[in-house]
Amino acid sequence: MKLSIDRQIYSDACISKVVYWLSAQYAIERTLDGTIETLSISRNDGHPFDETELRSQCLRLLNDYKLRQTIDDETRDIRTILYAKAFADDENLTVE
């Protein structure tokens, strides 16, 4: 099965996370042509699989990881401040 993904929509990190979770059951080859990444997917055990179901699962995972990446990107600074306040032994860490 082949799945084409536009890197302008889904980042390398998002795609890598999807590949990571699928790799328990599937062998996935990644090729990049311009902004289009193609995943060539086959079962590790060689058994047939439901391509429609897997395509749907991939898109769901991609969308979830894209949302998570947006949350991470938008909250990186406040998270750093939060952890610094929680764990740095520095009473001067006060937000002005």
Binding site: D64, L67, R68, T70, I71, E74, T75, I78, R79
Partner: peptide, 8 residues
């Protein structure tokens, strides 16, 4: 509004 860190 601003997002704060969370997971889902």
């Amino acid at each position: 509004y601003y997002l704060l860190p969370f997971k889902f």
